[in-house]
């Protein structure tokens, strides 16, 4: 099992290292991720949402439905934990 794990790790690591060469440098202000859509969020967030914190503005205003779905995920997880861990009552069916 350890040999299989090592082989899998080496293959995955080789692929990831191969992909590192194509990434932009760490902290490059002209990288594609920082020049495509994020400037518009940074420029318009204060005017459109009146929230000084851009992360909160995007999380609760631009992507409000995403956050609502996340709340549903946490609720489902809590219900799942309760259903898994509850003790079965004795003498009630199975």
């Amino acid at each position: 099992m350890k040999a299989i794990a090592l082989i899998a790790v080496l293959m995955t690591g080789g692929l990831l290292i191969y992909s590192i060469e194509g990434l932009p440098d760490w902290g490059d202000p002209d990288s594609p991720a920082s020049t495509h859509v994020s400037p518009e969020y940074i420029q318009d967030a204060l005017e459109k949402t009146a929230t000084p914190n851009i992360v909160t503005a995007v999380l609760a205003d631009y992507r409000g439905y995403d956050t609502m779905g996340e709340t549903a995920v946490i609720f489902t997880a809590g219900i799942g934990c309760v259903l898994i861990l509850r003790k079965k009552r004795k003498g009630k069916g199975d």
């Binding site: 994020s38 420029q43 851009i54 992360v55 999380l59 992507r63 997880a77 898994i84």
Partner: peptide
Amino acid sequence: VASYVNPLPHVLMLTAIVVSIATTGVALAA
């Protein structure tokens, strides 16, 4: 724009952290 870091990955990863703790909780219950 150059004086603020890119906020979009932070937003997505905020969601990812909370979902990861939910999966960890269900896995520990199992």
